[in-house]
């Protein structure tokens, strides 16, 4: 498991350049351009189970969802940041990408630290330190449990129309 450390205000153009927004939509089209202008190594070296640790306002900028779809598709286990921009946060709920907002955990992280996450208990361990994060509200958990918003909506439609 590798931990990718980035700073504050990582915007959606850094995560996925705007020039590809209307030509790349599927996970396979998105993957090669992930974090292209931020960290050219990322797309080549990222592996399932890796974690991103970042500063304030992660995912600010455009409403494009390719960054979230891409990070989910390459198997990022979680993004832990001091804070997230709200459209990115919603998109992550809708795609089932785990985001953890914990300034304490981010500040405690030192290169080489191992990170483990217990979603059910709301606990995150960074090196030898443990932090808690608040549980998701029930409305949002329901989307997560359905495997993302589209599955949740499909269930809703089935109940409505049979």
């Amino acid at each position: 498991m590798r931990i990718w450390r980035y700073g504050d205000d990582i915007n959606t153009d850094m995560l996925f350049p705007g020039k590809y927004t209307y030509t790349c939509s599927t996970p396979d089209e998105i993957k090669p351009h992930l974090l292209e202008d931020l960290d050219p190594e990322f797309a080549r070296k990222v592996k399932p189970g890796d974690i991103i640790v970042a500063g304030k306002n992660f995912g600010c900028g455009s409403s494009r969802e390719q960054p979230v779809v891409g990070l989910k598709a390459v198997g990022i286990k979680a993004v832990i940041a001091e804070s997230f921009a709200r459209i990115f946060y919603r998109a992550a709920i809708n795609q089932g990408l785990l985001l953890i907002e914990s300034a304490e955990a981010v500040k405690a992280y030192k290169p080489g630290d191992k990170i483990s996450i217990d979603i059910d208990k709301g606990r995150i361990t960074v090196g030898d330190k443990e932090f808690s994060f608040p549980p998701l509200p029930k409305e949002i958990l329901a989307i997560r449990e359905a495997g993302g918003l589209l599955n949740y909506t499909r269930e809703k439609l089935r109940k409505l129309y049979g």
């Binding site: 409403s63 494009r64 969802e65 979230v68 459209i87 919603r90 998109a91 809708n94 795609q95 993302g148 918003l149 589209l150 949740y152 909506t153």
Partner: peptide, 9 residues
């Protein structure tokens, strides 16, 4: 603003 998936829903 919202994302594409939410717009679809």
């Amino acid at each position: 603003g919202i994302d594409r998936t939410e717009a679809a829903s």
